[in-house]
């Protein structure tokens, strides 16, 4: 069989034409499903929150929330768990997005958790990625959130592939993969007791490529670090490590400037760029189509610690 691609990367990913006669695409199916999930969450929970990292997935979530709830206000605030180790471009984008939407943003910082003695750092350069779990769970307790909407996708990682769209968390914020509620049709069981909560993942069925196609179709703005830019990096094994304030240089490290872009955006201490000249969404889509390395495999140190590291973090209450 011949499956050669006929994709023209210069063509827009899809035109914005929502008349009812237009053929229904898989993006429409995913969009409608996600809107349905967001509305079910708003209807079934007393005090939901949307976890906004200012990355591409949660930016797509915000557009879906606009589609679900405008012209009304969002029926939930947004929560940013700030590690303090941010890319400045991302914080800039976050603040502009919030100004545009006019919705309420709650920021809770890992630094506060450190100052309160809730977590301790071994050294300043340590990744704060896993520490976010404490800050997140503390924020859930502080505000009494009973549902946390997140942008995680099942295609990201093996443990995520097994997670429900409505994913139950016990009194300790923990995920028990063996005791998940069966999830049938589009009937979500949102019942939780006080102290428990639900994680809700409207993008469960989206892939990295779907996200980029949707960003193109909706002309969504995303942080500039997703596009090709020159950045100081050091090459270690097969990875590029960004140079930043607390990077500890190792023997043999050579700082060089490379044309790179990020595929995920997280804590600066554990997010790795890939070499790429892709400067537009269309070029990123063309590269993603050809991509032979998974999104997290390429770019996240935190998943490489062991084959089960996401599973272990999720069990503890991570996003």
């Amino acid at each position: 069989m011949n499956f050669e691609t006929s994709v023209d990367p210069n063509r827009p990913a899809a035109t914005v034409d929502r008349t009812a006669d237009r053929s229904w695409s898989h993006l429409d199916t995913l969009e409608s499903e996600a809107i349905h999930v967001l509305r079910e969450t708003a209807a079934e929970f007393r005090n939901p929150v949307l976890m906004f990292s200012a990355g591409k997935d949660s930016t797509v979530l915000l557009r879906l929330a606009e589609r679900a709830f405008r012209p009304g206000r969002f029926p939930f605030p947004l929560l940013h768990v700030d590690t303090g180790h941010n890319f400045p471009e991302v914080i800039d984008f976050r603040d502009r997005t919030m100004a545009r939407l006019g919705e309420r943003l709650i920021v809770r910082t890992v630094q506060e958790s450190i100052d309160k003695g809730r977590v301790t750092l071994k050294k300043e350069s340590q990744s704060r990625n896993a520490l976010q779990t404490v800050t997140l769970l503390d924020a859930i307790t502080e505000f009494g959130f009973d549902a946390c909407i997140g942008g995680a996708r099942r295609d990201e990682e093996k443990a995520r592939a097994k997670e429900r769209i409505f994913s139950f968390r016990d009194e300790f914020g923990q995920w028990d993969p063996r005791r998940q509620r069966p999830e049938l049709w589009h009937l979500y069981n949102g019942r939780v007791d006080p102290g428990q909560h639900m994680r809700v993942f409207p993008l469960s069925n989206w892939t990295e490529l779907d996200i980029w196609q949707y960003i193109a179709r909706e002309s969504l703005e995303i942080p500039t670090i997703y596009f090709a830019h020159h950045r100081q990096v050091v090459r270690r094994a097969n990875h590029l490590v960004p140079v930043w304030e607390f990077l500890e240089l190792q023997p043999g490290d050579v700082i060089e400037s490379r044309l790179v872009r990020f595929r995920t955006v997280g804590d600066i201490s554990c997010t790795l760029p890939v070499e790429s000249p892709a400067a537009t969404v269309a070029e990123i889509i063309a590269e993603t189509v050809e991509a032979r390395v998974s999104e997290r495999g390429a770019t996240r140190m935190d998943d490489r610690t062991s084959e089960a590291s996401m599973e272990l973090r999720k069990i503890a209450g991570y996003f």
Binding site: A13, R22, T29
Partner: peptide
């Protein structure tokens, strides 16, 4: 190859 869906999901999901 994995192909992105410029043809508006002709084959659907």
């Amino acid at each position: 190859k994995l192909v992105h869906d410029t043809e508006a999901g002709a084959g659907g999901l």
